[in-house]
Write a protein that binds this DNA or RNA. Structure first.
Lengths: 120, 120
DNA sequence: ATCACTGATATACTTTAGTATACTGATTGT
DNA sequence: ACAATCAGTATACTAAAGTATATCAGTGAT
């Protein structure tokens, strides 16, 4: 009854949902730039904003919230003489590394594939 | 002069471009469903359309073109008694497999991470 | 007192992605 | 003759993503 050769439709659909979820978490124009910026040592709102050319405060605010909901960053409020808010990458965010590496390599190769002149 | 510890900004930007390129190739609502459908043996336009609930002919047409430009599928016109058009995955499209697998696994795990109740 | 900086939010707008629906011209079937 | 299927395209629309710009209250410096 061909059980292992082909997966069931339901399994296949579920796989697709997982893939689309992953895509959703990292796509959009600013998510990766924000992650990279924080990774490069920018931890405060205005600092991150300044480090990313053309981003608007509204988008930064919106994306930071989404990244926080997805547990990729943490927002910390520390109350000294004046209030201080910092954003940091979570340990969990590091689990994205292999995926990002794979995407980087695929994209690099893809550019070559697309650019290459067809041999006669 | 810390040459290998930290990458240059330019390198970093280029990496990001590659990543965004990869994202662009596979994102959108229908690209993966279309790839999966062809992979499951649907090779003709109407066949693919019927296999994907809710997709419109316009989107299918548009996405097939993009997938073809990105060399993930080939469109073949064979001229028998009547004309026959088939879509097939390219060998190159298989290079996406590790990436898709990684996204599937990350997404699956992420769902668990997000859903988990915080321990007191 | 005034100015600039902090971490944002609000409102209104444009652009891009996706939907809905009708239609074409050629072929095959009844 | 008529309907159905093929492989799409055209036009018009809605929804989602992103931009532009102004504003807020609190702190610190001049």
């Amino acid at each position: 009854m061909m059980k292992d050769k082909k997966q069931s439709d339901e399994e296949c659909l579920q796989d697709m949902r997982h893939i689309q979820d992953t895509l959703y978490v990292i796509s959009g124009k600013w998510k990766l730039p924000i992650i990279m910026s924080i990774n490069n040592g920018n931890n405060r709102f205005r600092e991150i904003a300044r480090s990313i050319p053309k981003i608007t405060l509204r988008m930064l605010s919106k994306e930071l919230k989404e990244l926080e909901m997805n547990k990729l960053i943490v927002r910390t409020v520390s109350d000294g003489s004046s209030i201080l808010i910092t954003y940091e990458l979570t340990a969990y965010s590091k689990t994205l590394a292999p995926l990002i590496e794979e995407m980087k390599n695929w994209g690099k190769n893809h550019k070559a594939v697309i650019t290459e002149r067809a041999a006669v």
